[in-house]
Amino acid sequence: MNILTIASRELRSLFLSPLAWSILGVVQFIFAYIFLAQLNTFIQIQPQLANIPNAPGATEFIAAPLFATSAIIFMLVTPLITMRVIAGERANKSLTLLFSAPLSMTDIVLGKFLGVVGFLICMAVMLALMPLSLGFSGSLDYGLFFAAWLGLVLLVASFAAIGVYMSSLTTQPTVAAISTFGILLMLWILDWSSDKVTDPNASGALEYISMLRHFEAMAKGLFSWADFMYFILVSAMFLILSIRRLDADRLQH
């Protein structure tokens, strides 16, 4: 109950700020451009695809790559949305309101997290509507479509958890934004430096931590519990860290 109150306040404040609207507008424009580019390519090579047995359909050719590319855009945008959730309130001194009310730190952190995730899901829904519209004129592979979309939402939720944590560390939203971006990018490209390239017997631990690895499979529609749990664990870990960080605010330093 308390969690939902905080989440809806967070969401409301987001929609009252020009930042959120401009993000929605700009990002939607870019999504649309990517979508149209994919659609165009698909139409061009469709005659050739018709001759191939088991050729990729519209979902595989348009929706999956669209979600995959949009992940990069979400990575750029999430830090801007999460940066002020705690840091901004700390700077405004409005965090005191939440600390003095009969709320637990868990309520506060989860509320803020859900508020941000709610906004990001709005963006993801807007994104999904474009390829879904193809369903009117052709057939879509809905299983693949929703598996890929779920993958995107899980990925974005873990972005948000990391953002909330970075925001809980500082008083300056910009610092929170840049550090969130740093961590997200790092987790994304971690497998570039994989030791497997040079040594085939290496453990591949870095690869396993990389978000890209887990998301790639899901974006292709391959749902696996391992990937699912990976995103849940990342989110849970950063949320717990945020709760502990807020608790530490009151304690002795």
Partner: peptide, 20 residues
Amino acid sequence: PLYMELTVEEYLNFCAKING
């Protein structure tokens, strides 16, 4: 501790809710 982007009513509504 105010949320500047809210109206007085909205703000007090939020305060009432979080205070149970």
